[in-house]
């Protein structure tokens, strides 16, 4: 007699039960934790935006330190004075603009007639105004994104980058202090021409002392991630240029 586990009918019944058990287990876990996960993502966005405009707990060491999660909500309200949405020439105010899904907007705009919503965050710190632009592009393996904070003369005041799956120790270093700090003081214009900021190798300026060259020293072993950032900065800031000029003149 063959063992009961060898029978076809048993195999089919076993797999059906297995699928039901595992499926409901995973669905239950995902459903139960969804609220908490969404909340964490929302807080993270606020932390990132604040980080770009220089509001963080960075000490003198080399670690990235965000505002503690408990204080984020109030800090965000205090420093981010206005959240604007730009859509097809119109500017509206929206206090939840930071929740706009850039990926979705980009995909919808690509499909056709849709004019994508472009969120812009205006921050005030010590009498200075910051214009914070969300960015999103492609790295080597997967998406890269971030925020860039400009002042009224289009000088970079700070950036924040993050990624989904860049190589640890190589491309993943875009979210490290030593790379992000290099962007401070860089310009996105060369005279009157829009250049963006290029991540380049061999610019002979590893300490990034030259702030007028529109260039930042690249990471070793992360050429494609760097090129992705260069393209992302150029492409996304360009969308905001007509909009920024209008707002800053006011």
């Amino acid at each position: 007699m063959t063992k009961f586990t060898e029978k076809n009918s048993y195999t089919i019944i076993f797999s059906i039960i297995m699928v039901l058990v595992v499926g409901s287990l995973l669905a239950g876990v995902a459903q139960g934790l969804k609220e908490k996960i969404d909340e964490n993502k929302r807080i993270e966005k606020q932390q990132n935006i604040l980080y770009a405009m220089g509001i963080n707990n960075n000490q003198n060491n080399t670690d990235v330190e965000f505002i503690p999660t408990k204080e984020v909500e109030n800090t965000f309200k205090k420093y981010i004075t206005k959240q604007l949405v730009y859509q097809g020439g119109k500017i509206t105010e929206d206090n939840n603009a930071y929740l706009i899904d850039i990926k979705k907007e980009e995909a919808l705009a690509k499909k056709g007639n849709y004019k994508r919503r472009l969120p812009l965050f205006i921050g005030e710190k010590e009498g200075k105004t910051f214009y914070i632009i969300p960015l999103r592009g492609k790295g080597l393996w997967d998406a890269v994104w971030g925020y860039i904070a400009l002042d009224k003369d289009f000088v970079v005041q700070g950036v924040f980058f993050d990624h989904k799956g860049e190589t640890p120790g190589l491309g993943a270093n875009i979210k490290e202090r030593f790379f992000m700090d290099d962007f401070k003081g860089e310009r996105i214009f060369k005279d009157t021409e829009f250049k963006g900021i290029s991540i380049v190798k061999g610019n002979n300026d590893p300490l990034n002392k030259d702030k007028t060259d529109n260039e930042v020293d690249a990471l070793a072993g992360a050429t494609i991630t760097g090129d992705g950032l260069t393209a992302m900065i150029k492409k996304d800031i360009k969308l905001y240029l007509p909009y920024l000029e209008k707002i800053i003149k006011k």
């Binding site: 586990t5 060898e6 048993y10 195999t11 076993f14 797999s15």
Partner: peptide
Amino acid sequence: NIIPSKIRII
């Protein structure tokens, strides 16, 4: 003891 041997890898 209850895993069907034909689909054990899955």
